[in-house]
Design a protein around this nucleic acid. Structure first.
Length: 316
DNA sequence: CATGCGTGGAG
DNA sequence: TCTCCAAGCAT
């Protein structure tokens, strides 16, 4: 949306902002095009099946966003449209302090203060705030609010985020070409690159588990994971030992270990042993899916790794 | 306020 | 290889 264009379609603003939560523009781009092509209006998305939306979201991560996306779309479609105030937006599933302000500012050009990671960094440097995040969050928000203009607040919000993304970057900020260099306290004190300070992070523990690729003729056993928790609502091979669930393996005469896949989650590293076997009876959970119907793109990243390991071992 | 929640890219 | 992290939200 070019600057000065005025109102933007709230549906598209909302969809892009949700996709961009903790996710890079590069990663979002194709997903956004795909979603808006499949579902041009929020009513179209509201009418979609859960599994279809989860499949289209697969690979983008943070799957609670997809579940909240659908819940939000259905609520908005029911009530006839998006709220046009930050408070109204804030009450919807998946829309928090950042996204509500972003939609109000960008789609409705309201003078709401948008504070994302970029703005936190820009403001921390402008005012040389040395308190570490996340404790500094409230102070940074209050300082940011003093900057929000009455004119073109939507363009201003986007400009602040762009400044943080391209010039006031986390490492080696390009202060030499920054339009705010004359106002920047951190720059004046030579500590721009050290801000914002952050509380140290806990090390990521290792976890191990097993995934079963259970074959039955020309079909494999897949399951929809429980809606809450890790990879909630996504399509997956049955597995256990790594996510707090302890479930028995599907019944097979014998299992052959194909190898291990590694995966990094936000708060732990995972080694998952991949076992291949032939089902002896009817599976107690999940559903048999014909091989040619299995869409790699509909699987979350971890399960794509399992699939890629098993695929060559499975007869066409 | 701390924790849980994905993934891929940059340095 | 490893660390950091990207336009956060829910609980």
């Amino acid at each position: 949306m070019p600057p000065g264009t005025g109102r933007a379609d709230p549906y598209r603003v909302w969809l892009s902002e949700v996709m961009l939560q903790q996710t890079t523009v590069a990663a979002v781009k194709d997903y956004f095009i795909r979603f808006t092509t499949l579902w041009p209006r929020i009513e179209d998305l509201a009418a979609a099946e859960d599994a279809r939306v989860m499949a289209e979201w697969a690979g983008l991560g943070y799957y609670a966003r997809a579940r909240n996306l659908l819940a939000c779309a259905r609520k908005v479609a029911e009530t006839g449209g998006f709220p046009d105030t930050r408070t109204g937006l804030r009450a919807l599933p998946g829309i928090g302090p950042y996204t509500s302000a972003a939609i109000a500012a960008i789609a409705h050009d309201q003078p709401e203060t948008v504070v994302d990671g970029n703005v936190e960094r820009v403001v921390a440097r402008l005012f040389a705030v040395e308190t570490a995040l996340p404790a500094a969050k409230a102070e940074l928000t209050a300082l940011a609010e003093t900057l929000t203009p009455r004119k073109r607040p939507g363009d201003y919000a986007q400009a602040m985020m762009d400044l943080g993304a391209t010039i006031c970057t986390p490492r080696s900020p390009a202060c030499g070409i920054c339009p705010l260099i004359a106002d920047c306290d951190a720059r004046a004190r030579g500590i721009a690159a050290d801000l914002p300070r952050k509380a140290p992070k806990a090390p990521r523990p290792e976890r191990r588990g097993i995934a079963w690729v259970a074959r039955h003729g020309q079909s494999l056993l897949l399951e929809q994971r429980p809606a809450k928790g890790l990879l909630g609502g996504t399509l997956a091979f049955p597995s256990t030992g790594w996510d707090g669930r302890e479930l028995p393996p599907p019944g097979a005469a014998q299992w052959r270990e194909l190898g291990e896949v590694r995966h990094v989650f936000t708060h732990f590293n995972l080694s998952l042993r991949v076992m291949l076997g032939d089902l002896t009876g009817n599976p107690e959970r999940g559903a048999l899916v014909p091989l040619r119907q299995i869409d790699r793109d509909a699987l979350p990243g971890l399960m794509r790794k399992v699939w890629d390991m098993a695929r060559p071992e499975i007869a066409a």
